[in-house]
Design a protein around this nucleic acid. Sequence first.
RNA 1: GGCGCGAUAGCAAAGCGGUUAUGCGUCGGAUUGCAAAUCCGUUGAGCCCGGUUCGACUCCGGGUCGCGCCUCCA
Length: 466
Amino acid sequence: MLQIYNTLTRQKEIFKPINPGKISMYVCGITVYDYCHIGHARVLVAFDVITKFLRSQNWDVSYVRNITDIDDKIIKRANENGEEFDALTKRFIDYMHEDEARLGISRPDIEPRATAYIDQIVDMNKTLIDKGFAYAATNGDVYYRVTRFADYGKLTNKNVDELLVGARIEVDEVKEDPRDFVLWKAAKTGEPAWKSPWGNGRPGWHIECSAMSKNCCGETFDIHGGGPDLPFPHHENEIAQSEAANGCKYVNYWMHAGAVRVDGEKMSKSLGNFFTIRDVLEKYHPEVVRFLLISSHYRSPINYAEDNLIEARSGLERFYGGLRDYADVAPLPLSEMQSSAYYLAFVEAMNDDFNTRVALAGMFDLVRELNNAKSNPELARNLAGQLKALGLILGVLQEGPEVFLQAGGSDQIAAETVEQLIAERIQAKQDKQYARADEIRKELLAAGVVLEDSRDGTTQWRREST
RNA sequence: GGCGCGAUAGCAAAGCGGUUAUGCGUCGGAUUGCAAAUCCGUUGAGCCCGGUUCGACUCCGGGUCGCGCCUCCA
């Protein structure tokens, strides 16, 4: 039984799909004017894991994640660079796809872009004007009349009257009310613009998601997700737009990921304290980044720090250590795991609002049994297959164990050199030249390589996590 | 000021009104030529003050501290 924490009701609820067995999910994606940072990675990974798990449980998931490829920041950045806005967005969309691929994030089923939905956005604005929820201002802007929507503020528990108090809302002569927000922005000279009944312009900051979700998911859909800073105003405004225009409930379950912090502060572009995905992947294996992100619950804040990445790597080393002798074992089909206590515990944890941490705890129990089962190859291979199957759902443990454990940067000692020294050491050991053998091991340790002798006289090696 | 979230052992991080979370680390043992890995064991917790209860880390109330949103940000 699937339970999901709903931001709207601020509690965990039993999930009831609109259509039996099906889930339509829309997640707010990236505004593409810069490289993706770890905060983006968290949302991307969270909903990737959620989708993978739901599909493993035979839910028919339609996963839509948009790209916002027109907005003020994009225009500003393109101007700074002296390039066309769509050249800028194309570049960063490509970078985003590269980052996703490296992190093992599956592409959404549909990845709509705002600029491809201008007609639908214009249509929705017309409807909102016709219904009296919006108005065209004298300068060609179109605004949403916030006070006309009775439910305004229901997602984030805002009182419309109090929005005026102390809030830094820009005073704008053309607005009827300072709380009104823009649906269509009249173009200034030289700005990218599309034709509309109100003159040339571009979409406002929230309407694109209302239009794209309606076209890709329908007027009412199951799950809407996004980052921690989106409930207000973005999602609140989406509700106002969509429910006013469509005349029906917009979304059943709202899901929001927790923030990634640096030194206790939220990581964000505006604070400038962000680490890009590609920066981090310079130094850490992609699965380490994924593991860090799934080591805590998707709604909890997590702290981005070097120590936490090292710890994430240690955890993965434990799994890969257990999988070492089973590089050839494929993930066991879930159909063969239906009675496995490990699988059942995993599913129970994930069905409980996607509790990846508890799911991982069960996998640590599994690897312990695997380590204990080395004398029973049949059992061990089964357990290894189970471990890989569960890892597959979370998007980890899919690397060759040796590849993972021996992965290193170009600044580190070469694998061939390590192998040579190991061969020399094995000879020394056979000759009972233990002093020489220990000397070699010490030398390698200084280079960040740990040797592990096994009973049959062979030696395995891995790189240190620090 | 408004709305919301959190405070767990050395660190990270979950569930739970009474029964081992888990990982990393520490310490002891097994194993090893010595190590490493692994296994077994050990260590160790619930911000403060009240209340409910036979019993609270877990529920309720009040503090304190931290964080997020209220403005573009995942």
